[in-house]
Design a protein around this nucleic acid. Structure first.
Length: 923
RNA sequence: GCCUCCGUAGCUCAGGGGUAGAGCGCUCCCUUGGUAAGGGCGAGGUCAUGAGUUCAAAUCUCAUCGGAGGCUCCA
């Protein structure tokens, strides 16, 4: 028996043993309750980073805990393997995406194994294999057959850098989320999924236990608003211009209309006289990138089309303008402009000298609003004015029908046929075609104008391997004739599917990755679905997490879960609601950030010119070691750009220009030093290679062992928040595991038991179980581990104090190791074996919490005077209220403060869940 | 600008009307045949600030300040 904890000696050994004995194979067993724990699958970038460990190992601990609690747990793993990086590697390193991806997967599988997680590798799914994407293609076909996939022309986000279109969700601040390069709008014919049809159902989060922030983000993203649609007509030609507004109560205040520059009607209605100006404006807008259009406080620009429209509510003639503040992608791409009550319209009206007419007058304002003098739009409550029959209607802050004025106007619009109630969404349909090679082919064939799906028997349409990667960024499929040419007439679709489509259903493929007759086995789906707990990063809030919800609902409506529903019934389980949502519970982990780094402390000598020092000499010294009489600049190096140092000198930033021939002295770095070697201060921020603050999990495992790593990650952060990396803190969990090892290795004490000491450790054990249970339940891994550490201390103290008999010690150790198993699976397994218990600790039941055993017998009764604690009296835990009051009043503190007088009142607070009982005496 | 979350010990975080807590770190002491270590004792906090509610506020309410994330010409 080894008396020292040596992680490396045991970890690989147990990982092999677990695999050899199929410890983590999960099979359908209708006699047991199921638990499908899922953690987001990685992209095979080639290296597992600390973020993967942080996301996956706590999830693993929780899955293990559920298993010990008696659930049949499925905890699978796979790879989201299509995507741009593979293609970029192909272009720049001349390596085929297949090779690159598979090599990375091989490597990452090994890295994942070193976590000691309970992944069931028999269920691994990889999205870029033909066995997998056959079904991605098949789903596409099903969607197409059911009208959920369609080809449409739309203004799309086009990335010149990536040579592909992107979904709205993939464009951030006008740049692509991957490379951060500008995205422009372009009219293109593309494939879409009709996600907007599910907008309302996607807004229903009632069945979901998801973080509030994600629900809010999705709600905002879907952006439902209520209002009305109305049709204006052009004065000449009578072209209808449909508008959407959330403020139909201000229809009478429309003094002009604005169309988005891309609007279809612009060409038709523009007068000959205005055409040159309008064309110039439209062209200018098209060239502008999204970023330029989004600059804040941008001055409103636009041009008059020369055309007029008739306002249907009052037959008024108003000018039609075009302006880039109206977006073609929102609503109908055309607005009625009500400058008096909409700030944007107001700014535009003032900039262009257009009239402003008040139609909502606030009731109790000191002065009535006047369109000619007001300095900002008024969007508050009031009474409708200048609105014919609607005058006097009360408009409130409420939106939609809840607002009496809006309600009345909508009724009137509908009665007169001038408009109708309408709901609008910010959400657009999901653009799913990508002009890339490394993705699932879209199983469609063009035959002239006709579009024909590929026969099921011919699926999958396989990606050809013998393609040439050109540095143009164009997809190789577009010039690979054997692929696209079906025959003289017919041509295959060369666009591929957005990888988010592949990851929208991977939780289903895990159920039966080998299944050849269907995307998933109905029996497996009936047993395992839905996912009970899903863990992963919050960065997927509005992409993956919205798409996969849509996907599940679409599959349900197409009827693809019908067999599973039938199987569920057959096995006596109620299928109600089981296939409405993919994941019942969602929790997001935070991010592990780079650690903070102190800048060098520097002494800079040279001559002072203006506000800066031209340094001839810079020396790195010990913190605050400034020679007496030193005349230059000294302090922490806060920042450096090229040769300019920002030195923090007692809180004031001093600028130091290091001269080209200056002498740089850095004692830690041998040889001649240069300015680039100076270490400047680094704030806590994301880990990235360029910042040089990335940590490598493989090296850490080699140094500390997987168990210590797992425990450090769980202990040192609030999991749902994340935080800065601090390697120094690994010592805590490492020392704890070492202590546990020693305690276990020490063997049972031979002394006879003292019932009181044994009762104490037993009580402590059960109190610990309660806290760990709660910690795991709530993803509060840090508190669970802190409690284990405390228990270790108690165990150690008890052993030193003596009085624990062999029988109790064995029972306590047996349970303590089981408590440790989910967190540190290797050491737990080793100690379990070392103490002679049967393989495996991971097949043991979780220790049962016994409230009776956790109960304290004696507690301190706190005597408070006017709410301030003054004295404690040791009493029985179940002390009666009357007795407590008596004891409190008799206490020295009470006597002193009361000084013979009667108390004004006394308040008894019983001790509940661990708190002491109290009596507050008000004097 | 709007929405959400968060400010508790040096650090990372629990608690959440009723005595201010944990781990790490730190001080001091012991060990010097576990030693690039081990053991023991201890110090550390106006719970961001201000007001209100209450017998009692770190906890509830409001305001202010500070931090993180998301949305943003959304008609």
């Amino acid at each position: 028996m080894s008396d020292k904890y040596q992680p490396h000696a045991i970890e690989v050994k147990w990982q092999r043993e677990w695999e050899a004995t199929e410890l983590y194979r999960s099979k359908v067993d209708w006699s047991k309750p199921k638990h499908y724990a899922l953690t987001m699958l990685p992209y095979p970038s080639g290296d597992l980073h600390i973020g993967h460990w942080f996301a996956m190992t706590p999830s693993d601990a929780r899955a293990r805990w559920m298993r010990m609690k008696g659930y049949n747990v499925l905890f699978p793993m796979g790879f989201d393997a299509f995507g741009l990086p593979a293609e970029q590697a192909a272009i720049s390193n001349n390596i085929h995406p297949w090779k690159w991806t598979y090599a990375n997967i091989e490597r990452m599988r090994e890295q994942l194994r070193s976590m000691g997680a309970m992944f069931d590798w028999e269920r691994e799914a990889i999205s870029c294999t033909p066995e997998y994407y056959k079904w991605s293609e098949w789903f596409f076909k099903k969607f197409y057959e059911h009208g959920l996939a369609y080809r449409g022309s739309a203004l799309v986000n086009w990335s010149e850098t990536l040579q592909t279109v992107l979904a709205n969700e993939q464009v951030i601040d006008g740049k692509d989320e991957r490379m951060g390069q500008p995205v422009v709008h372009k009219m293109m014919e593309q494939w879409f999924f009709a996600i907007t049809r599910y907008a309302d159902e996607l807004l229903n989060f009632k069945p979901l236990d998801w973080p509030e922030s994600i629900k809010i983000m999705q709600t905002n993203w879907i952006g439902r608003s209520e209002g009305a649609r109305a049709t204006f007509r052009t004065e000449v030609g009578g072209h209808p211009i449909e508008i959407y507004t959330t403020r139909p109560d201000t229809l009478w205040g429309a003094t002009f209309m604005v169309l988005a520059p891309e609007h279809d009607l612009v060409e038709k209605i523009t007068t000959e006289e205005r055409r040159p100006a309008v064309r110039a404006y439209v062209e200018r807008t098209a060239l502008e990138s999204e970023i330029e259009r989004m600059v804040e406080d941008r001055e409103k620009t636009g041009v008059f089309t020369g055309a007029f429209a008739i306002n249907p509510v009052n037959d008024e003639r108003i000018p039609i303008w075009i302006a880039d503040y109206v977006m073609i992608t929102y609503g109908t791409g055309a607005i009625m402009a009500v400058p008096a009550h909409d700030q944007r319209d107001f700014e535009f009206a003032r900039a262009q000298g257009l009239p402003v007419r008040v139609v909502i007058q606030p009731v109790d304002a000191a002065e009535a609003l006047d369109g000619d003098t007001m300095s900002a739009a008024y969007d508050g409550p009031g009474l409708m004015v200048n609105s014919d029959a609607m005058d006097g209607s009360e408009s409130t802050w409420d939106k939609g029908r809840k607002n009496p004025a809006i309600n009345r106007v909508i009724d009137w619009l509908e009665a007169t046929g001038k408009g109708e109630e309408a709901v609008n969404y910010r959400l657009r349909d999901w653009l799913i075609s990508r002009q890339r090679y490394w993705g699932s082919p879209i199983p469609m064939i063009f035959d002239g104008d006709a579009v024909i799906p590929v026969d099921d028997e011919q699926l999958p349409v396989e990606l050809p391997e013998d393609v040439d990667f050109m540095p143009t960024g164009r997809s190789p499929l577009t010039y690979h004739e054997p692929f696209y040419k079906v025959d003289e007439k017919r041509r295959r679709e060369t666009d591929t599917l957005d990888t988010f489509m592949c990851s929208s259903w991977y939780q289903l493929r895990y159920l039966s990755p080998e299944c050849e007759s269907a995307p998933f086995d109905a029996e497996e789906a009936a047993y395992w679905l839905p996912v009970d707990v899903y863990t992963g990063g919050a960065e997927h809030a509005v992409m993956h997490l919205l798409y996969t919800r849509f996907f599940t609902k679409a599959l349900r409506d197409i009827g693809l879960f019908d067999d599973a529903i039938e199987a569920m019934r057959r096995n006596g389980r109620d299928p109600a609601g089981a296939f409405d949502e993919p994941m019942t519970v969602l929790r997001n982990q935070g991010q592990v950030l780079g650690g903070e780094r102190q800048g060098d402390f520097v002494l800079c000598g040279g001559r002072q010119v203006g506000g800066r020092l031209l340094a001839e000499r810079v020396e790195v010294v010990e913190w605050n070691q400034v020679p007496p009489g030193f005349a230059g600049v000294f302090g922490e190096l806060a920042h450096r750009t090229e040769n300019v140092l920002h030195v923090d000198m007692a809180g004031i930033t001093q600028f130091v220009d290091v001269q080209p021939d200056a002498e740089i002295i850095i004692p830690d770095i041998a040889g001649e030093n240069n300015v680039n070697q100076l270490r400047h201060h680094l704030d806590i921020q994301r880990m990235s290679k360029s910042k040089g603050n990335v940590v490598n999990p493989d090296e850490l495992v080699a140094e500390y062992g997987a168990d210590a790593m797992r425990c450090y990650l769980m202990f040192n952060f609030d999991w749902q928040k994340g935080g800065p990396w601090n390697e120094n803190n690994i010592k805590g969990p490492q020392g704890w595991l070492g202590d546990v090892w020693e305690i276990a290795a020490a063997g049972a004490p031979s002394a006879p038991g003292d019932p009181s000491a044994e009762r104490d450790i037993e009580r402590k054990l059960h109190q610990t179980i309660a806290v760990i249970n709660r910690g795991l339940e709530e993803f509060s891994f840090n508190t669970a581990i802190a409690e284990q550490m405390k228990f270790k201390n108690a165990l150690k103290a008890a052993l030193r104090a003596g009085g624990i008999g062999a029988e109790v010690w064995h029972s306590v150790m047996n349970q303590a190791i089981r408590l440790l198993a989910p967190f540190a699976p290797h050491i737990a397994e080793e100690l379990w074996a070392m103490l002679g218990w049967e393989y495996s600790v991971h097949r043991q039941p979780w220790p049962e919490y016994d409230a009776e055993k956790a109960r304290e017998e004696q507690v301190d009764l706190v005597v408070m005077i006017n709410g301030k604690p003054r004295e404690t009296i040791s009493v029985a835990v179940d002390i009666a209220q009357e007795r407590a009051r008596e004891l409190a009043l008799a206490s020295g503190a009470a006597q002193r403060f009361l000084d013979g007088k009667a108390p004004r009142r006394t308040i008894f607070i019983p001790g509940r869940n661990g708190t002491d009982p109290k009596v507050n005496i008000v004097v």
